[in-house]
Design a protein around this nucleic acid. Structure first.
Length: 495
RNA sequence: GGGCUCGUAGCGCAGUUGGUAGCGCAGGAGACUCUUAAUCUUUUGGUCGUGGGUUCGAGUCCCACCGGGCCCA
């Protein structure tokens, strides 16, 4: 990126490069190899919380971080590290002239190490009384304005590092994201789940309904796609018997639109447990999410954009047909043909397309009339068979499957099934999908012969579940856009 | 894909009825030296997203395009 194609920036940059040269002439490496930092800003603040204003100690520490403000021509420097801020007090009484000269050359944005005694200034600011200074990295480009910071969302996304330097809450969000993922992993591993990896490069997209990114392998001379879901490979592992409980937490790629809840690459966890069904998945999800919230936020009652959401188990359960009846008054058990269902949908003002199946129509009604009304966590149970090609038929109703989607704040947070293990039925479902694809549904999946072959070797009954990590992080960090929880969201290159 | 909306100095923002652009911070020079958005003096910096059009004259009005954001499908 050409960041210097203007006069303000280039004059600042030239000025700083001159400083680089001056330092080098003095035998100082402006980009040295290491520094013996032995305390963080936050640790210092905590340790000397009781130190009174005007008090001095003889405790010496080495601190390091980024210069965020310089006052009184270098006498006071705000040094920021990931933990917080510590002030540097530099006075010629305590510093050799050559060290003082280095401090005079510092710019906001430089990364610097200081060594000195802890004191609290008469005005009450905990400080390091610098006795030594070491430039650790010279910055050449200026930071945004110190008071208003960086607010331009486009620059925040394109130059996330600047966003993170200027906005502490952004750093905090990404730390929380990391912690959430760590806690999920710990929770599942403690339950005996084995973390596995399956291919990102697929010959054929499967395991979800979505358009894939397409690519090409040169040596194999083969068209390939980036995976839209790991499901079919994880089930192969279940057939293989590596573990009766396994999960993969990683990226999926879907070649679809971008909005506040969708990024083309996103993080999902998929987990499978042998010998259980979707009922067990509901309990697992409730316990997992609520305990992660407790661990990360210290509470199971979160606030999202002004709305209180209670994650304390157990969560509400509604069947899909029951929820539709609740919010529209229409009982689709009485309208079992596509024609009847379409007529009811049209009465509700919902557009039905020519090839829409019974299940698809119900799904549309659900999305429009029910989903926006759901705020508190709720499992929506028993999805129609024709839109659930990987779920086992419902034991009590052959039109439905044992599938649930969990909604929190109306968003799909999880999608889980009593997994379809019958290879004959699976083939039939795939063939139905293939027919829809042939009729123009670009999201329908094709027939994965090797997957069916795996099922024909016998897959244990299992519950499986996918959980959208980004949306979970949005909820737990009160972030309004998925781009606030993905460090480098997909962007069109700047012209 | 549709609607609304934004783009002016590195950043945060003004810019009147159409008359060739200002403020704050940052940067430079100097002063001060226990400050914390330090202060004071002084000063540099602009292809007003891009390209057309209307006009004597466009940051401003019109059109197209580029790049964002929000909402909808």
């Amino acid at each position: 990126m050409e960041a210097t194609n203007n006069s303000t920036i280039s004059s600042i940059r030239e000025n700083r490069i001159q400083k680089l040269n001056d330092l080098t002439d003095k035998g100082i490496n402006p980009y040295p190899y290491s520094y013996d930092k032995n305390i963080s800003a936050a640790e210092l603040q905590k340790k000397y919380k009781e130190l009174a204003a005007g008090e001095e100690t003889t405790d010496t520490y080495n601190v390091a971080g980024r210069v965020m403000a310089i006052r009184n021509t270098g006498m006071f420097i705000d040094l920021m590290d990931p933990s917080g801020k510590i002030q540097i007090f530099s006075h010629k009484e305590n510093l050799e002239p050559d060290k003082m000269a280095i401090i005079k050359m510092l710019d906001v944005g430089d990364i610097v190490g200081f060594s000195g005694d802890v004191r609290r200034t008469p005005r009450g600011e905990l400080s390091i009384k610098a006795k030594d200074v070491k430039l650790l990295s010279k910055s050449l480009l200026p930071l945004p304005e110190k008071f208003h910071g960086l607010t331009d969302v486009e620059i925040r996304y394109r130059q996330r590092y600047v966003d993170m330097i200027m906005n502490p809450e952004v750093r905090d969000t990404f730390r929380k994201r990391s912690l959430i993922i760590q806690k999920i992993r710990e929770y599942l591993c403690a339950q005996g789940f084995l973390e596995v990896e399956t291919p990102m490069l697929h010959v054929q997209a499967g395991g979800a309904s979505a358009r894939p990114f397409e690519t090409y392998h040169n040596t194999l001379d083969m068209h390939m796609v980036l995976r839209i879901a790991p499901e079919l490979h994880l089930k192969r592992l279940l057939v293989g018997g590596v573990s009766e409980k396994l999960f993969e937490m990683n990226r999926n790629f879907r070649n679809e639109g971008i909005d506040t809840r969708h990024n083309p690459e996103f993080t999902m966890i998929e987990l499978y447990q042998a010998y259980v069904d979707y009922n067990d998945m509901m309990v697992l999800l409730e316990n997992l999410v609520s305990s992660v919230a407790q661990d990360v936020l210290g509470t199971m009652v979160i606030e999202y954009q002004g709305q209180k959401i209670n994650l304390t188990p157990p969560w509400d359960r509604k069947t899909m047909l029951g929820a539709i009846k609740e919010f529209t008054g229409i009982d689709f058990n009485e309208y079992l043909t596509v024609e009847e269902a379409a007529k009811q949908a049209e009465k509700l003002g919902i557009e039905v397309e020519e090839n829409d199946s019974w299940g698809k129509i119900l799904d549309k009604i659900f999305e429009e009339r029910v989903e926006p009304k759901l705020v508190q966590p709720v499992h929506i149970l028993d999805y129609p068979r024709d839109i659930s090609p990987l779920a086992k038929v419902h034991r009590d109703n052959p039109r439905l499957t044992e599938r649930f989607e969990t909604r929190i704040n109306g968003w799909e947070i999880s999608n889980a099934f009593s997994e379809l293990t019958d290879p004959i039925d699976q083939r039939n479902r795939f063939e139905a999908q293939a027919r829809e694809k042939a009729m123009g549904d670009e999201e329908a999946c094709g027939i994965d012969e090797d997957f069916i072959c795996a099922l024909e070797h016998g897959m244990p009954p299992a519950g499986g579940m996918g959980i959208g990590i980004d949306r979970l992080v949005m909820l737990l960090t009160n972030s309004p856009s998925i781009r606030d929880v993905i460090a480098f969201p997909t962007m069109r290159p700047r012209a």
